[in-house]
């Protein structure tokens, strides 16, 4: 299935919603996902480009940013035979 990674100039994503006084993470698990990803890249399990590719091909616009990250991490770990 073709995928469009670069959304610059596309229509149809609705208004830009700004959350006032947004915290860095909305829940503790989001921080865990961020830290886990850094550690796995740091260990060389996968690299940053592989991670971004995984986010792009597994992402859902219904999921939150870190939900998409977690799905990408799980996908890569499965594909690499780690988990």
């Amino acid at each position: 299935m073709p995928r469009i990674n670069d959304v610059g100039g596309l229509d149809g994503f609705g208004p830009v919603l700004e959350e006032l006084d947004e915290p860095p993470f909305h829940a503790d698990w989001e921080a865990h996902v961020m830290a886990m990803n850094r550690a796995l890249i740091g260990q060389g399990i996968y690299n940053l480009d592989e991670f971004r590719d995984a986010v792009e091909r597994t992402m859902s616009h219904e999921s939150s940013y870190y939900e998409n990250w977690f799905r990408a991490i799980q996908t890569l770990l499965k594909e690499k035979g780690v988990v």
Binding site: N5, D6, V7, G8, G9, L10, D11, G12, F13, G14, P15, V16, L17, E18, E19, E22, P24, F25, R52, V55, E56, H61, S64, Y65
Partner: peptide
Amino acid sequence: TLCSCYPLSLLGPSPTWYKSPAYRSKV
């Protein structure tokens, strides 16, 4: 427009709207 690249060290964690397809496409 591709993902969510951002100068974290100078701006802190990026807000969700910056990472949203809505902002990335429309700006």
